[in-house]
Amino acid sequence: MLKVSDLSAGFETETGFLEAVDRVSFRVDDKESLGIVGESGCGKSVTAHSILGLLPQPSGKITGGTISLNGKELATLGEKKLREIRGREVGMIFQEPMTALNPVHPIGRQIAECLRTHGMGKKRQNRDRALELLQKVGIPSPEQRLKEYPHQLSGGMRQRIVIAMALACHPHLLIADEPTTALDVTTQAQILELLAELKESLSMALILITHDLGVIAETCDRVVVMYAGRVVESAPVREIFANPLHRYTAGLLRSIPSLETVPKTRLSTIPGRVPGLAELPVGARFAPRSDHPQIDDYLQSEDFHSKRPDLIEAAPGHWVEDCDYVRTD
Protein backbone atom coordinates (compact mmCIF):
# COMPACT_ATOMS: atom_id res chain seq x y z
CA MET A 1 0.00 0.00 0.00
CA LEU A 2 2.69 2.50 1.03
CA LYS A 3 6.34 2.38 0.06
CA VAL A 4 8.80 4.99 1.32
CA SER A 5 12.23 4.81 -0.32
CA ASP A 6 15.33 6.82 0.69
CA LEU A 7 13.21 9.67 2.09
CA SER A 8 15.23 12.70 3.20
CA ALA A 9 13.69 15.84 4.69
CA GLY A 10 14.64 18.77 6.87
CA PHE A 11 14.31 22.45 7.61
CA GLU A 12 15.84 25.69 6.39
CA THR A 13 17.20 27.70 9.33
CA GLU A 14 19.20 30.88 9.80
CA THR A 15 22.35 28.76 10.08
CA GLY A 16 21.60 26.63 7.00
CA PHE A 17 19.66 23.49 6.12
CA LEU A 18 19.25 20.89 8.90
CA GLU A 19 18.40 17.35 7.83
CA ALA A 20 15.92 15.65 10.21
CA VAL A 21 15.26 12.50 8.14
CA ASP A 22 18.14 10.80 6.33
CA ARG A 23 17.31 8.25 3.61
CA VAL A 24 14.54 6.46 5.49
CA SER A 25 12.93 3.46 3.80
CA PHE A 26 10.04 1.21 4.82
CA ARG A 27 6.82 -0.25 3.46
CA VAL A 28 3.32 -0.86 4.78
CA ASP A 29 1.32 -3.71 3.33
CA ASP A 30 -2.46 -3.86 3.04
CA LYS A 31 -4.15 -4.27 6.48
CA GLU A 32 -0.74 -4.38 8.20
CA SER A 33 0.31 -2.55 11.38
CA LEU A 34 3.77 -0.96 11.28
CA GLY A 35 5.33 0.61 14.36
CA ILE A 36 7.94 3.38 14.14
CA VAL A 37 9.78 3.71 17.43
CA GLY A 38 12.56 5.88 18.83
CA GLU A 39 13.39 8.63 21.30
CA SER A 40 12.04 12.15 20.95
CA GLY A 41 13.89 13.99 18.20
CA CYS A 42 14.74 10.92 16.12
CA GLY A 43 12.63 11.97 13.10
CA LYS A 44 9.47 9.88 13.57
CA SER A 45 6.96 12.73 13.29
CA VAL A 46 8.88 14.46 10.48
CA THR A 47 8.69 11.20 8.52
CA ALA A 48 4.92 10.97 9.06
CA HIS A 49 4.32 14.62 8.17
CA SER A 50 6.44 14.24 5.03
CA ILE A 51 4.16 11.47 3.77
CA LEU A 52 1.15 13.81 3.74
CA GLY A 53 3.01 16.99 2.79
CA LEU A 54 2.45 18.52 6.22
CA LEU A 55 5.95 19.82 6.94
CA PRO A 56 5.81 23.43 8.22
CA GLN A 57 6.16 25.90 5.40
CA PRO A 58 8.23 27.50 4.05
CA SER A 59 11.08 25.98 6.07
CA GLY A 60 10.22 22.27 5.78
CA LYS A 61 11.36 20.46 2.63
CA ILE A 62 11.61 16.95 1.21
CA THR A 63 15.07 16.80 -0.36
CA GLY A 64 15.13 13.27 -1.74
CA GLY A 65 13.47 9.90 -2.08
CA THR A 66 10.02 8.68 -3.10
CA ILE A 67 6.69 8.12 -1.30
CA SER A 68 4.40 5.78 -3.22
CA LEU A 69 0.78 5.26 -2.09
CA ASN A 70 -1.02 2.61 -4.14
CA GLY A 71 1.19 3.53 -7.08
CA LYS A 72 0.79 7.32 -6.72
CA GLU A 73 3.92 9.35 -6.04
CA LEU A 74 3.16 11.74 -3.16
CA ALA A 75 6.48 13.56 -2.79
CA THR A 76 5.95 15.51 -6.01
CA LEU A 77 2.17 16.05 -5.79
CA GLY A 78 0.83 19.58 -5.56
CA GLU A 79 -1.13 20.88 -2.57
CA LYS A 80 -4.52 20.47 -4.27
CA LYS A 81 -3.97 16.77 -4.99
CA LEU A 82 -2.57 16.17 -1.50
CA ARG A 83 -5.71 17.70 0.02
CA GLU A 84 -7.77 15.11 -1.84
CA ILE A 85 -5.63 12.30 -0.39
CA ARG A 86 -5.53 13.57 3.21
CA GLY A 87 -8.49 12.18 5.06
CA ARG A 88 -9.96 10.24 2.14
CA GLU A 89 -7.07 7.82 1.51
CA VAL A 90 -4.81 8.48 4.51
CA GLY A 91 -6.11 9.53 7.93
CA MET A 92 -3.88 11.21 10.51
CA ILE A 93 -4.14 11.24 14.30
CA PHE A 94 -1.98 14.07 15.56
CA GLN A 95 0.12 13.95 18.70
CA GLU A 96 -1.75 16.55 20.78
CA PRO A 97 -5.56 16.51 20.36
CA MET A 98 -6.06 19.92 21.97
CA THR A 99 -4.02 21.59 19.22
CA ALA A 100 -5.54 19.37 16.49
CA LEU A 101 -9.06 20.59 17.32
CA ASN A 102 -10.36 24.11 16.72
CA PRO A 103 -11.28 25.62 20.11
CA VAL A 104 -13.99 27.95 18.72
CA HIS A 105 -16.12 25.37 16.87
CA PRO A 106 -18.27 22.59 18.34
CA ILE A 107 -17.21 18.99 17.78
CA GLY A 108 -20.06 18.18 15.39
CA ARG A 109 -19.16 21.03 13.04
CA GLN A 110 -15.50 19.98 12.94
CA ILE A 111 -16.32 16.37 12.03
CA ALA A 112 -18.85 17.53 9.43
CA GLU A 113 -16.17 19.77 7.88
CA CYS A 114 -13.99 16.71 7.22
CA LEU A 115 -16.89 15.12 5.32
CA ARG A 116 -17.83 18.31 3.50
CA THR A 117 -14.24 18.89 2.34
CA HIS A 118 -14.36 15.59 0.46
CA GLY A 119 -17.93 16.05 -0.83
CA MET A 120 -19.38 13.24 1.25
CA GLY A 121 -23.06 14.01 1.82
CA LYS A 122 -25.28 16.97 2.65
CA LYS A 123 -25.69 18.80 5.97
CA ARG A 124 -28.18 16.38 7.54
CA GLN A 125 -26.29 13.34 6.30
CA ASN A 126 -23.03 14.74 7.69
CA ARG A 127 -24.59 15.25 11.12
CA ASP A 128 -25.84 11.65 11.13
CA ARG A 129 -22.42 10.43 10.03
CA ALA A 130 -20.71 12.48 12.78
CA LEU A 131 -23.07 10.93 15.33
CA GLU A 132 -22.28 7.46 14.00
CA LEU A 133 -18.54 8.12 14.24
CA LEU A 134 -18.79 9.26 17.87
CA GLN A 135 -20.67 6.08 18.69
CA LYS A 136 -18.06 4.00 16.86
CA VAL A 137 -15.19 5.45 18.93
CA GLY A 138 -17.05 4.96 22.20
CA ILE A 139 -18.03 8.54 23.11
CA PRO A 140 -20.81 8.53 25.77
CA SER A 141 -23.89 10.71 25.12
CA PRO A 142 -22.77 11.38 21.51
CA GLU A 143 -25.67 13.73 20.65
CA GLN A 144 -24.69 16.03 23.49
CA ARG A 145 -20.98 15.89 22.57
CA LEU A 146 -21.72 17.09 19.03
CA LYS A 147 -22.70 20.47 20.51
CA GLU A 148 -19.78 20.74 22.93
CA TYR A 149 -16.39 22.42 22.46
CA PRO A 150 -12.95 20.76 22.87
CA HIS A 151 -12.26 22.42 26.24
CA GLN A 152 -15.38 20.77 27.68
CA LEU A 153 -14.01 17.27 27.07
CA SER A 154 -11.37 15.18 28.86
CA GLY A 155 -8.04 14.32 27.21
CA GLY A 156 -9.19 10.79 26.43
CA MET A 157 -12.44 11.99 24.87
CA ARG A 158 -10.60 14.59 22.77
CA GLN A 159 -8.31 11.85 21.49
CA ARG A 160 -11.34 9.76 20.53
CA ILE A 161 -12.78 12.78 18.69
CA VAL A 162 -9.53 13.14 16.71
CA ILE A 163 -9.68 9.42 15.86
CA ALA A 164 -13.29 9.85 14.70
CA MET A 165 -12.24 12.73 12.43
CA ALA A 166 -9.37 10.67 11.01
CA LEU A 167 -11.79 7.84 10.17
CA ALA A 168 -14.58 10.04 8.79
CA CYS A 169 -13.86 9.32 5.11
CA HIS A 170 -12.97 5.60 5.48
CA PRO A 171 -9.22 5.92 4.74
CA HIS A 172 -7.19 2.89 3.67
CA LEU A 173 -4.24 3.90 5.87
CA LEU A 174 -4.25 5.49 9.32
CA ILE A 175 -1.15 7.25 10.71
CA ALA A 176 -1.26 7.61 14.50
CA ASP A 177 1.44 9.97 15.79
CA GLU A 178 1.94 9.13 19.49
CA PRO A 179 -1.84 8.81 20.08
CA THR A 180 -1.45 8.03 23.80
CA THR A 181 0.91 10.88 24.76
CA ALA A 182 -0.14 12.76 27.94
CA LEU A 183 -2.94 10.27 28.70
CA ASP A 184 -3.15 8.25 31.90
CA VAL A 185 -2.35 4.54 31.72
CA THR A 186 -5.98 3.38 31.77
CA THR A 187 -6.96 5.77 28.97
CA GLN A 188 -3.88 4.76 26.97
CA ALA A 189 -4.99 1.12 27.10
CA GLN A 190 -8.51 2.08 25.99
CA ILE A 191 -7.21 4.13 23.02
CA LEU A 192 -4.89 1.32 21.88
CA GLU A 193 -7.68 -1.22 22.18
CA LEU A 194 -9.96 1.09 20.18
CA LEU A 195 -7.37 1.50 17.40
CA ALA A 196 -6.91 -2.28 17.18
CA GLU A 197 -10.67 -2.86 16.98
CA LEU A 198 -11.17 -0.16 14.33
CA LYS A 199 -8.27 -1.45 12.26
CA GLU A 200 -9.84 -4.90 12.11
CA SER A 201 -13.43 -3.76 11.57
CA LEU A 202 -12.52 -1.22 8.86
CA SER A 203 -9.74 -3.34 7.24
CA MET A 204 -7.21 -0.49 7.43
CA ALA A 205 -3.44 -0.45 7.46
CA LEU A 206 -1.89 1.36 10.43
CA ILE A 207 1.35 3.26 11.08
CA LEU A 208 1.81 3.74 14.83
CA ILE A 209 4.49 6.23 15.89
CA THR A 210 5.63 6.00 19.50
CA HIS A 211 8.63 5.96 21.84
CA ASP A 212 7.12 3.05 23.80
CA LEU A 213 8.10 -0.46 22.70
CA GLY A 214 5.42 -1.88 25.00
CA VAL A 215 2.79 -0.17 22.85
CA ILE A 216 4.45 -1.56 19.71
CA ALA A 217 4.41 -5.11 21.11
CA GLU A 218 0.70 -4.91 21.79
CA THR A 219 -0.36 -3.34 18.50
CA CYS A 220 2.00 -3.92 15.56
CA ASP A 221 3.11 -6.65 13.14
CA ARG A 222 6.46 -5.10 12.20
CA VAL A 223 8.62 -2.38 13.70
CA VAL A 224 11.07 0.19 12.37
CA VAL A 225 13.55 1.54 14.93
CA MET A 226 14.79 5.08 14.19
CA TYR A 227 17.69 6.95 15.71
CA ALA A 228 18.85 10.48 14.84
CA GLY A 229 16.94 10.54 11.56
CA ARG A 230 17.94 7.09 10.32
CA VAL A 231 16.48 3.59 10.40
CA VAL A 232 18.88 1.47 12.47
CA GLU A 233 16.85 -1.76 12.66
CA SER A 234 13.70 -3.21 11.12
CA ALA A 235 12.03 -6.59 11.74
CA PRO A 236 8.82 -8.38 12.69
CA VAL A 237 7.83 -7.42 16.23
CA ARG A 238 8.38 -10.89 17.73
CA GLU A 239 11.86 -11.04 16.17
CA ILE A 240 12.84 -7.62 17.55
CA PHE A 241 11.85 -8.58 21.09
CA ALA A 242 13.46 -12.03 20.91
CA ASN A 243 16.66 -11.04 19.13
CA PRO A 244 17.52 -7.31 18.97
CA LEU A 245 20.62 -6.84 16.81
CA HIS A 246 21.31 -3.15 17.40
CA ARG A 247 22.60 -1.85 20.73
CA TYR A 248 20.09 1.00 20.62
CA THR A 249 17.15 -1.42 20.26
CA ALA A 250 18.55 -3.60 23.02
CA GLY A 251 18.89 -0.52 25.25
CA LEU A 252 15.28 0.48 24.61
CA LEU A 253 14.11 -3.03 25.50
CA ARG A 254 16.17 -3.11 28.71
CA SER A 255 14.60 0.17 29.82
CA ILE A 256 11.09 -1.32 29.89
CA PRO A 257 10.05 -2.34 33.44
CA SER A 258 8.90 -5.94 33.71
CA LEU A 259 7.48 -8.30 36.32
CA GLU A 260 10.95 -9.84 36.60
CA THR A 261 12.55 -6.49 37.56
CA VAL A 262 14.00 -6.65 41.07
CA PRO A 263 12.01 -4.25 43.31
CA LYS A 264 13.68 -0.95 44.29
CA THR A 265 16.48 -1.28 41.71
CA ARG A 266 17.31 1.43 39.20
CA LEU A 267 15.81 1.03 35.74
CA SER A 268 18.30 0.56 32.92
CA THR A 269 19.03 3.69 30.89
CA ILE A 270 20.95 4.55 27.73
CA PRO A 271 23.71 7.04 28.59
CA GLY A 272 24.09 10.27 26.64
CA ARG A 273 21.51 11.97 24.42
CA VAL A 274 20.30 12.09 20.83
CA PRO A 275 22.62 14.45 18.90
CA GLY A 276 21.23 17.76 17.65
CA LEU A 277 20.52 18.19 13.95
CA ALA A 278 23.55 20.46 13.58
CA GLU A 279 25.96 17.88 15.02
CA LEU A 280 25.04 14.64 13.24
CA PRO A 281 28.05 12.47 12.25
CA VAL A 282 28.37 10.69 8.92
CA GLY A 283 29.08 7.32 10.55
CA ALA A 284 26.94 5.29 12.94
CA ARG A 285 25.07 7.96 14.86
CA PHE A 286 24.52 5.83 17.95
CA ALA A 287 28.25 5.16 18.31
CA PRO A 288 28.96 7.93 20.91
CA ARG A 289 26.45 6.23 23.23
CA SER A 290 27.53 2.65 22.46
CA ASP A 291 29.03 0.41 25.16
CA HIS A 292 31.25 -1.51 22.71
CA PRO A 293 34.67 -2.09 24.38
CA GLN A 294 36.59 -0.58 21.41
CA ILE A 295 34.17 2.25 20.70
CA ASP A 296 36.84 4.95 21.20
CA ASP A 297 38.86 3.48 18.31
CA TYR A 298 35.84 3.79 16.01
CA LEU A 299 35.01 7.34 17.12
CA GLN A 300 38.52 8.44 16.17
CA SER A 301 38.55 6.52 12.89
CA GLU A 302 38.06 7.81 9.35
CA ASP A 303 35.00 5.53 8.96
CA PHE A 304 33.08 7.39 11.70
CA HIS A 305 33.72 10.74 10.03
CA SER A 306 33.19 9.78 6.39
CA LYS A 307 31.36 6.43 5.90
CA ARG A 308 27.65 5.89 6.43
CA PRO A 309 26.80 2.28 7.43
CA ASP A 310 24.39 0.41 5.14
CA LEU A 311 21.45 -1.65 6.33
CA ILE A 312 22.06 -5.38 5.89
CA GLU A 313 19.60 -8.28 6.11
CA ALA A 314 21.05 -10.26 9.03
CA ALA A 315 18.12 -12.73 8.96
CA PRO A 316 15.06 -13.05 6.68
CA GLY A 317 13.11 -9.82 7.11
CA HIS A 318 15.45 -8.55 9.86
CA TRP A 319 17.54 -5.53 8.80
CA VAL A 320 20.17 -3.82 10.93
CA GLU A 321 22.82 -1.13 10.58
CA ASP A 322 26.08 -2.67 9.33
CA CYS A 323 28.57 -1.47 11.93
CA ASP A 324 30.24 -3.82 14.39
CA TYR A 325 30.48 -1.09 17.06
CA VAL A 326 26.70 -0.65 17.34
CA ARG A 327 25.57 -4.20 16.71
CA THR A 328 24.93 -6.70 19.50
CA ASP A 329 26.15 -9.78 17.64
Rank of each mutant, 00 (worst) to 15 (best):
D303V: 14
D177I: 02
L77N: 01
N243P: 00
P58V: 04
L208G: 01
V274C: 12
L192A: 05
M92A: 06
T99G: 06
A242I: 08
L259P: 09
F17I: 04
P150H: 02
L253S: 04
Q188F: 09
C169L: 04
G71W: 12
Q190P: 09
L18C: 12
D29N: 15
F241W: 12
L299K: 08
L174N: 12
E239S: 14
F241I: 10
H246L: 09
S40N: 13
L206K: 02
E143F: 00
G16V: 03
Q57F: 03
Q110E: 14
V326R: 02
S255W: 03
S50F: 10
L7G: 06
D6I: 00
R116Q: 15
A168M: 11
L173H: 05
E197W: 01
D184R: 08
M204E: 13
E19Q: 09
L146I: 10
I107N: 04
P150Q: 02
P150A: 12
I67W: 07
Q300V: 01
A217N: 13
S40A: 13
R266I: 08
L213K: 01
G156W: 09
R83F: 06
S59A: 14
K307V: 15
G156P: 07
H305P: 00
L134I: 10
Q294T: 11
D22R: 14
K72E: 15
A284L: 05
E143K: 09
P271Y: 09
T180F: 05
V90F: 10
I216Q: 05
L174C: 14
I107D: 13
Q300T: 09
L208H: 03
L146Q: 04
A100E: 12
I36E: 14
D303M: 13
A176I: 11
K199G: 11
L277T: 09
R273Q: 13
T47P: 00
R289Y: 12
D184G: 09
R116I: 12
V223Y: 10
I111M: 08
P275E: 12
L115P: 03
E113S: 13
P271H: 09
I175M: 07
V104E: 11
C323G: 07
C323Y: 07
Y325S: 06
A228I: 02
K264G: 01
A166N: 06
R129I: 06
N243W: 00
V28F: 09
S40H: 13
G283H: 04
E279F: 14
H318M: 06
I312C: 08
I51M: 06
I139Q: 06
I295R: 15
P150Y: 07
E279H: 15
D184K: 10
A287C: 01
Y298S: 07
P316L: 11
